Simulated assay, not measured.
Amino acid sequence: MGKRPSLSSVSPPREFTFQRKPLRVFQHEQGPRFVAADVAKLLKYPDEAALQTALGGKAGCLLSPASGPSLLTLSEAELRHALRAGRKTQAQALQLWLDDTLLPILRKGTHADQDKLQLAYALAGEAARQVGQAVWESVLAGEVDGQHSRWLVSLHYQVQQGQRRPSGNTVALQAEVSALAALAACVAEERALPVSNRDLIKLAAACHLRLAERMQKQALRA
Rank of each mutant, 00 (worst) to 15 (best):
E15Y: 12
E15L: 12
F16A: 06
T17C: 12
F18D: 13
Q19E: 15
Q19T: 15
R20L: 11
K21G: 08
K21W: 13
K21D: 13
L23Q: 06
L23E: 06
L23W: 13
V25S: 09
V25G: 10
F26Q: 14
F26N: 12
Q27K: 15
H28I: 15
H28F: 12
E29D: 11
E29C: 11
E29G: 12
E29K: 13
E29N: 15
Q30S: 14
Q30E: 14
P32D: 02
P32F: 09
P32V: 11
P32C: 11
R33C: 04
F34Q: 13
F34W: 13
F34P: 09
V35K: 07
V35G: 06
A36L: 02
A36D: 03
A37P: 05
A37T: 14
A37G: 10
A37N: 15
D38N: 13
V39M: 13
V39K: 11
V39F: 07
V39D: 07
A40K: 01
K41N: 14
L42G: 02
L43H: 00
L43Q: 00
K44L: 06
Y45P: 05
Y45H: 13
Y45D: 06
Y45M: 05
P46W: 05
D47G: 01
D47V: 03
D47K: 06
E48C: 03
E48A: 12
E48L: 05
E48W: 02
A49L: 04
A50L: 01
Q52F: 07
Q52G: 15
T53H: 11
A54V: 08
A54Y: 03
A54S: 12
L55H: 01
L55Q: 01
L55E: 01
G56S: 04
G56C: 09
G56M: 07
G57F: 05
A59L: 14
A59F: 11
G60Q: 01
L62I: 10
L62H: 07
L62D: 03
L62T: 06
L63V: 05
L63P: 04
S64A: 07
S64D: 05
P65G: 10
P65E: 09
P65V: 08
A66D: 12
A66Y: 05
S67F: 10
G68P: 13
G68A: 08
P69L: 05
S70R: 13
L71K: 10
L71N: 06
L72D: 00
T73M: 05
T73R: 01
S75C: 08
A77S: 15
A77K: 11
A77C: 08
A77V: 04
A77P: 00
L79W: 03
R80H: 03
H81K: 09
A82N: 09
A82E: 04
A85R: 14
A85E: 07
A85C: 02
G86T: 02
G86A: 10
R87A: 02
R87V: 00
R87L: 05
K88P: 00
K88T: 04
K88N: 05
K88M: 10
T89S: 06
Q90Y: 00
A91K: 01
A91S: 11
Q92F: 02
Q92W: 08
Q92A: 04
A93K: 01
A93V: 10
